[in-house]
């Protein structure tokens, strides 16, 4: 399959899952009623359901999924390490800590964009620590160990902040921040996440040529005219922006950035640059599918998205560790 055909196929898959996400829900509207309500605003209650409940949920699923897929592919390309993934190396949980601090200190109440910005700050600190520890070559072991420590610390601090909250419901939401969910998210959240998400994508997507050149090694890439320091800064800020924005509204959803690049890598001829747009589309498709699944499996229980992505992703992660070990 040519690269262009692959992108078309993934695009169609995302569109189909987006439509399915709009049509599935407890209100049990028929597809024709749903579309009439969505497009023409027919039927007061149905229009509310379609435009204010299901549409923002589907949009967020696509946005956050694309961010996670894209960030995973970019981090793996830069570090030349297939285990790098925002959830696993603690970037998402640090972003969640930033978001929780913004919410519980009242910062987000005073200034709405403080929520994604604080999440960005959390993610930024995590990426900087990781790259500082693992170095530009991203030794697999250092990266994963540092990631485990960061995840544990950020998770514990998130729990601490939520336990100290005067709100009795806050402590019960630890699982949301660690597992992620799109239940009952609204356009308020879309508008909160959208600006930083787009900035993040705009920073990462142009890195195609640089990441391709890096496969030849740093010296060769530099000889080809790639400015490595600049590539690194752009990547760090881009990943922090789009992961931070996603986590701020949907919690930390793990493994999307691991599964998607792994599945798509053979289809793009193992070129990290081409993997970027493909993984963005693949991530959107995976998260939309997971969000449809949580609504179909146990609609009453608000199953968290991270539960499904981990059930698929963790065995794959173990498989990758096994392969990495065998290669050494």
């Amino acid at each position: 399959m040519s690269f262009r055909a692959l992108l078309w196929a993934l695009g169609l898959l995302v569109a189909a899952l987006f439509a399915a996400s709009l049509l599935i829900g407890p209100a049990g509207l028929s597809p024709s009623d749903s579309l009439a309500a969505l497009i023409a605003g027919r039927g007061e209650a149905a229009a509310l359901v379609m435009r204010e409940i299901r549409l923002p949920r589907a949009i967020l699923g696509a946005l956050v999924g694309a961010s996670l897929g894209l960030s995973g592919a970019a981090l793996q390309g830069y570090l030349r390490n297939p285990l790098a993934e925002p959830g696993l190396i603690g970037v998402s949980s640090s972003a969640a800590l930033g978001a929780v601090i913004a919410l519980q200190t009242g910062l987000a109440g005073a200034f709405a964009l403080a929520l994604p910005l604080m999440a960005l700050a959390g993610a930024l600190i995590a990426v900087l620590i990781l790259l500082g520890l693992a170095g530009p070559r991203g030794g697999a072991l250092t990266l994963i160990l540092a990631g485990i420590a960061l995840s544990a610390l950020a998770g514990a601090l998130t729990s601490l902040v939520l336990n100290l909250s005067p709100n009795p419901y806050a402590a019960a939401e630890i699982v949301f921040w660690m597992m992620g969910s799109l239940t009952d998210r609204s356009f308020t959240h879309v508008w909160l996440a959208l600006p930083l998400t787009l900035i993040g994508w705009a920073l990462i997507l142009p890195l195609v040529r640089g990441l391709d050149a890096l496969t030849l090694g740093e010296d060769a890439a530099a000889a080809l005219g790639v400015r490595l320091a600049r590539l690194r800064v752009t990547l760090v800020v881009g990943v922090a922006a789009c992961v931070g924005a996603g986590v701020a509204v949907a919690g930390a959803i793990g493994f999307v950035g691991l599964i998607v690049p792994h599945l798509l890598r053979p289809l793009v001829g193992a070129r990290p640059g081409r993997l970027l747009p493909a993984s963005a589309l693949g991530g959107a498709a995976l998260l939309l599918a997971a969000d449809i699944a949580v609504r179909l499996i146990v609609p009453e229980r608000d199953l968290k998205l991270g539960v499904l992505t981990a059930i698929v992703g963790a065995p794959l992660f173990l498989h990758l560790i096994y392969k990495t070990r065998a290669a050494q």
């Binding site: 209650a45 519980q104 009242g106 709100n167 009795p168």
Partner: peptide, 24 residues
């Protein structure tokens, strides 16, 4: 589910009292 509440369109929605601090 919020969808079902909206489609039922009641005459009166009685909510719980709010606490300080934030929660989803």
């Amino acid at each position: 589910p919020l969808e079902l509440l909206v489609t039922a369109a009641p005459d009166l929605v009685i909510t719980g009292a709010r606490y300080p601090g934030a929660s989803r």
